[in-house]
Computed example of a mutant assay.
Amino acid sequence: MQSLDEIVLTGLTVFGRHGVFEHERRDGQDFTIDLRLRLSLAKAADSDDVTDTVHYGELAEKVAAVVAGEPVNLIETLAERIAAVGLEDRRVQEVVVTVHKPHAPIPLNFADVAVTIIRRRTPDAMEETSA
């Protein structure tokens, strides 16, 4: 069985215009993203070659483009779009995405609001990868 290692990117903060209220889309706010990719890193560790792993700098840029891009109502939807970016690389078997919205329009004192989703590559997609 193939090992599942992790690449973790935390605290990626990007300005976006997501939310259900008009003022959220007009004024925008910072969103913070935590991303955990699960995949085997054995080949990369052995070869010492960046092409044998997920390039986390490029990944961060793709995720930032999603957050800064087309507005959505819900951070659940934003998390789903980010998860799709993480799964673009067929070596990734699972992605865990947390979207933090620390400036959510809640009229109470709070530190953060976040949504975390976990998405796994389907067995069919895994078979296509190994073929």
Rank of each mutant, 00 (worst) to 15 (best):
His100Phe: 06
Ala68Asn: 03
Glu58Trp: 10
Thr51Ala: 15
Asp89Lys: 08
Leu74Pro: 06
Pro102Ile: 08
Ala45Met: 12
Asp46Gln: 15
Asn73Leu: 14
Thr98Ala: 15
Val85Thr: 05
Leu74Glu: 06
Asp52Val: 01
Asn109Cys: 13
Glu94Thr: 14
Lys62Met: 11
Glu88Val: 10
Asn109Thr: 14
Glu94Pro: 03
Arg36Gln: 13
Val92Gln: 04
Ser40Glu: 07
Thr32Cys: 06
Asp48Met: 07
His55Gly: 06
Thr53Cys: 09
His55Ile: 11
Ala84Ile: 07
Tyr56Glu: 03
Ala84Gln: 12
Val113Tyr: 08
Ser40Ile: 02
Val63Lys: 07
Phe110Thr: 11
Ser47Asp: 12
Asp49Trp: 02
Val95Lys: 01
Asp112Val: 00
Val95Ile: 02
Ala60Phe: 03
Leu74Lys: 06
Val67Thr: 10
Asp46Trp: 12
Thr77Phe: 09
Ala42His: 09
Gln29Lys: 11
Thr32Arg: 12
Gly57Met: 03
Val99Ala: 11
Val72Ser: 12
Asn73Trp: 13
Val50Glu: 14
Val113Asn: 02
Thr98Ser: 14
Thr51Phe: 10
Arg90Leu: 14
Thr51Leu: 12
Ala65Val: 02
Ala44Val: 07
Glu61Lys: 14
Gly69Trp: 00
Asn109Arg: 14
Thr53His: 03
Glu80Pro: 04
Gly69Asp: 07
Asp30His: 12
Val66Arg: 02
Asp52Glu: 09
Pro71Lys: 09
Leu41Phe: 01
Val66Leu: 08
Asp52Met: 00
Thr77Ile: 11
Asp89Ile: 05
Ala64Met: 00
